[in-house]
Simulated scan of single mutants.
Amino acid sequence: MPLSRRALLSTATATALVSLASPAVAAPRRRYRAAAIRHIPLQGAVNVRDLGGYLTYTGDRVRQGLVYRGDALGKLTDADLTTLSGLRLATVVDFRIPLEIQADGADRLPGGLVPVSRAVTDNGLNALIRAAIGSRDPVKQEEMLGGGRAAAFMAEVYRTFVTDADNRARFAATVRDIARPGAGPLLYHCTSGKDRTGWLSYLLLTVCGVPERYAVEDFLASNTFRAAYDAKLREGLKQAGLMQNPDLLIPMQEVRTEYLNAALAEAKTRYGSLFRFLTDGLGLEPRTLAQLQDRLVD
Rank of each mutant, 00 (worst) to 15 (best):
R5W: 05
S19G: 08
R31H: 11
Y32T: 09
A36V: 07
A36P: 03
A36G: 02
I37E: 12
I40D: 14
I40P: 13
A45G: 01
N47W: 13
L55G: 14
T56S: 01
R61Y: 06
V62Y: 00
L66S: 01
L76C: 10
R88A: 03
F95T: 06
L99S: 13
Q102M: 12
L109M: 10
N126E: 13
N126F: 15
I129N: 06
A132I: 01
I133A: 05
K140L: 15
E142W: 10
E142A: 15
M144V: 10
E156I: 14
Y158F: 10
A169F: 12
V175L: 15
V175S: 04
A183C: 11
P185N: 07
P185R: 02
P185E: 05
L187P: 12
S192R: 12
Y202L: 05
T206E: 03
T206K: 04
V210Q: 09
V216F: 02
S222P: 04
N223W: 09
P246F: 12
P246E: 12
D247M: 03
L249P: 06
I250Q: 12
T257Y: 02
L260K: 06
A262D: 00
K268D: 08
Y271H: 15
Y271W: 13
G281R: 10
G281S: 10
E285K: 14
R287H: 09
Q291S: 14
D298N: 13
